[in-house]
């Protein structure tokens, strides 16, 4: 069947409470016709991975504003792979350009830096989140 909406899990890892950006992204993706499983604040990589498994998510989006993306971004990828999931990970938030390369090398599928526009967000998620046709 075609036309099934992509299913995206959105979360913030760690203690950082800046969820304005993640909430805006949730609405942007919804308005682009996607189904967003919104977990919000204070999630762990392992917890998000378990949710991605149960939700059969097509992508996981995490938002980072506290300079811990180099620790938690790769940890998110590893947590998914530990469950045998190939789910692509998109990292957004305050990520310096140099670090984007490091994250991609660690298996992060896409990095959305500060100031990414709504069309850029939607395009990046659509590119990586392809509901497979099972």
């Amino acid at each position: 069947m075609t036309g099934a909406p992509p299913r995206i899990v959105l979360a913030k890892l760690g203690f950082d409470g800046h969820d304005r950006g993640l909430k805006i992204v949730a609405r942007i993706l919804r308005d682009a016709g996607m189904e967003v499983v919104y977990l919000g604040l204070r999630q762990t990589p392992e917890g998000v991975a378990a949710v991605a498994e149960q939700e059969d998510a097509d992508a996981v989006g995490i938002s980072m504003h506290n300079a811990s993306h180099l620790t938690l971004g790769p940890a998110m990828v590893e947590a998914l792979r530990a469950l045998g999931l190939a789910t692509p990970v998109v990292v957004g938030g305050i990520v310096p350009a140099d670090d984007a390369e490091t994250l991609r090398a660690a298996g992060v599928a896409a990095v959305l830096g500060p100031g990414a526009s709504a069309p850029e967000v939607v395009a990046a998620v659509r590119r990586v989140a392809v509901p497979d046709d099972g």
Partner: peptide
């Protein structure tokens, strides 16, 4: 952030955030 959230530095949730912000 761990201090602001009442977590010790050796709490697993603090990983990557100790002394950062």
């Amino acid at each position: 952030m761990p201090t602001l959230m009442g977590a010790d530095s050796d709490d697993p949730r603090s990983r990557g955030e100790v002394g950062r912000a």
